Simulated assay, not measured.
Amino acid sequence: MRIIGVWLVLLSVPASACTLWGAAGDAVEGGGTLLAKNRDWRPDHAQSIRILTPKDGFRYVGLFADDGAEPGIKAGVNEQGLAVVSAAASSIPKKIRNAQTDARGVMSKILRQYGSVADVIVDAAILFQPARANFLMLADRHQILQVEIGLNGQYSLSTQSNGVLAHTNHYLSQELAHCNQLQGESSHLRLARVSSLLAVDKKWRLDNFAAISRDQHDGADNSLWRHGKEYTLASWQIALPEQGAPQLNLVLANPQQSELKAQWTLDAEFWRQNAAVLLP
């Protein structure tokens, strides 16, 4: 892969931020995996939690932006126990990202068609070479997969089956470092903070991840839970245990509405329900 020269600007990247983190194996109390996302965006649209039933493929529940500049799914988990969360590649200038002709919808495709991280890795080129620049973190009961999608069909994969992972809005892999044309201060501060919190030698649980999501160590604009130029509009935390049903915890902080909190056990009864909208 050819590395090209780039220009770097240190600034606060606008309205395209999220924080992703996870733990797997011995780092999780009882084993399995944990996966979390704080969704940060302009407080100018509504969100919902919905169950989708495709004509072909697996059912899945997702966090959706229902309107605004970037509607669509932002986090999800399917009935096979494969979860995926996303973060914007804000280190690529917006005019370049908006000019992409790459395919959208990779998250929905993964949730509809794949039951494990291993299966996604097998089809990585099919899934990620045509996709738009983005960051994904996936988990099943056994491992976490971190995906960095760059420009022109480039992508990078890393896995974790016995430890922790974290990502924000800039590229971490050496082969895609040339995509970091904008170096957002918030992205670097949030990555440093969540990484430092995860560095504690402990067995992680969902309630620990919920506490991380509320961290405000670095002020209104640069904390994990934000209320400055951008707001944290949702927090998604899921446990995928070695045995038993997944547990999904959700905080929905839609603008000008009371904060909603919910927990679901994703067992057979959950997937049999006919509901299309779970929240709000």
Rank of each mutant, 00 (worst) to 15 (best):
R193T: 06
V194A: 01
S195W: 00
S195D: 04
S195Y: 04
S196C: 01
L197V: 09
L198Y: 05
A199S: 14
A199C: 07
A199H: 06
V200N: 10
D201R: 07
K202L: 13
K202Q: 15
K203R: 13
W204Q: 09
W204C: 02
W204V: 03
L206F: 01
D207L: 00
N208Y: 06
F209L: 04
F209C: 08
F209M: 02
A210Q: 13
A210P: 00
S213T: 13
S213N: 12
R214D: 13
D215T: 05
D215M: 02
Q216C: 06
H217E: 11
D218Q: 11
G219K: 05
A220S: 12
N222H: 15
N222T: 10
N222R: 12
W225T: 04
R226V: 14
R226C: 13
H227Y: 13
H227V: 11
G228E: 12
G228D: 06
G228F: 10
E230N: 03
Y231T: 08
L233P: 08
L233R: 06
A234I: 02
A234T: 04
A234D: 07
S235H: 06
S235W: 03
W236N: 12
W236Y: 15
I238E: 08
A239K: 15
L240D: 03
P241A: 01
P241M: 09
E242G: 14
E242R: 14
E242W: 00
Q243N: 12
Q243A: 13
Q243Y: 11
G244C: 10
A245W: 00
A245C: 09
P246E: 01
Q247I: 14
Q247A: 12
Q247T: 15
L248C: 11
L248A: 02
N249S: 10
N249L: 10
L250Y: 05
V251Y: 06
L252H: 02
L252Y: 05
A253V: 07
P255S: 08
Q257I: 00
Q257E: 11
Q257F: 11
E259D: 05
